[in-house]
């Protein structure tokens, strides 16, 4: 119980910290926009797509999407491994 109170107090302090940070941001006026302005200005000529989100996802930051596809693939492989073991009826004793 005491542990829980300490936990809650520390979480309150954390959220107060985050709240002060949130109040110092200004919504609707991002500070540094050089990279995104470059993407918006030259993205159409360099990738040929009208949708700039897609051009960032697949072209400018293609490595990111490569890792993401790999994560999705590995998750599906993991689910398949788990349930194949269940399907085969292979029971492990809990040692």
């Amino acid at each position: 119980m005491k542990k829980m109170i300490v936990l809650l107090v520390s979480l309150l302090i954390l959220s107060a910290f985050l709240g002060v940070m949130a109040l110092t941001f200004t919504f609707g006026a991002p500070k540094m926009t050089d990279m995104d302005d470059y993407f918006l200005r030259f993205g159409q000529e360099q990738t040929g797509t009208n949708n700039q989100c897609t051009s960032v996802t697949f072209d400018f930051r293609g490595f990111d999407t490569l890792g993401e596809s790999t994560v999705l693939f590995c998750a599906v492989i993991g689910v398949a491994l788990i349930f194949r073991k269940m399907q085969a009826g292979e029971e492990h004793e809990n040692e």
Binding site: D36, F39, V56, D64
Partner: peptide, 23 residues
């Protein structure tokens, strides 16, 4: 226009969230 890079990275984050939720 709004900034495109945070939206693209949010798309990445959503798909990874779906994968981890399934697992």
């Amino acid at each position: 226009m709004v900034l495109p890079t945070p939206q693209a990275l949010t798309l990445t984050s959503i798909v990874i969230g779906v994968a981890t939720s399934a697992l």
